[in-house]
């Protein structure tokens, strides 16, 4: 399995954030996107996830047989927000995503196993709103475990996490890569892995408005 971006061009409003951007990662590899605030890390990830349209270029996920796979169904996207309902219990939240994001690429962990993995055993029966910000973020990471999808798209996954949880997160990503997964993350956290490529976004590339309004 291989994820390839070619000649991606993305913009926010009138300003082009990146142009002619390309990379390839394959099984067991991770790509870390770095850059200053506003450089377009989130925009890039949302384009990869299919939530935003790229101005030009394309992002493809190719299966082992070389056929293109729909990114929508083979990728997990973890945004800034946790995608959990405060009113519902942790158990209800996770089992909802488990059945909603069911995919053909393999079984995920059970809800209890996933909660054990992120080190919050015993939290399942509590309403999500009772948890602290760091605990909530870890539950959001558990969503990636309950249904199996090979490509992880992570936007600042370690926000609100403490040092210990940082390591826990790095372990989760390593396990995912070792199992043949792929990960693309916007993070400043060193993952402590060998096969990590990095991509630095430098900021505003050019102003498109010059062409349009000139």
């Amino acid at each position: 399995m291989q994820a390839t971006a070619t000649k991606l061009k993305g913009r926010r409003g009138d300003s082009v954030l990146f142009d002619n951007l390309g990379f390839t990662i394959s099984r067991g590899e991770a790509l870390v996107i770095t850059g200053p605030n506003g450089a377009g890390k989130s925009t890039l990830l949302r384009i990869l996830a299919g939530l935003l349209a790229a101005d030009s270029g394309e992002f493809l996920l190719l299966g082992d047989d070389g056929a293109a796979l729909p990114v929508l169904e083979f990728a997990h996207y973890l945004g800034h927000r946790n995608a959990m309902k405060r009113e519902l219990r942790v158990q209800e939240n996770l089992s909802f995503w488990k059945s909603f994001q069911r995919s053909d690429s393999g079984e995920g962990l059970s809800v209890d196993e996933a909660i054990d993995q992120i080190g919050l055993t015993g939290v399942a029966h509590l309403p999500f709103g009772y948890l602290s910000a760091g605990q909530q973020r870890r539950i959001a990471l558990a969503r990636l475990l309950v249904s199996h999808r090979p490509l992880w798209l992570l936007d600042e996954p370690t926000a609100a996490l403490d040092k210990r949880s940082d390591r826990l997160f790095a372990d989760l990503v390593r396990q995912h890569l070792e199992a043949g997964g792929l990960a693309i993350a916007a993070t400043h956290q060193p993952l402590g892995l060998e096969n990590v490529r990095s991509l630095e976004l430098s900021g505003i590339h050019s102003a498109a408005s010059e062409e349009v309004w000139a």
Binding site: G50, L51, E73, Y77, H80, R81, M84, K85, W97
Partner: peptide, 13 residues
């Protein structure tokens, strides 16, 4: 949208 679930709902065929 506020809690981010909407992204996952839209990320479907």
């Amino acid at each position: 949208r506020e809690d981010g679930s909407l992204d996952m709902l839209v990320m479907q065929d």
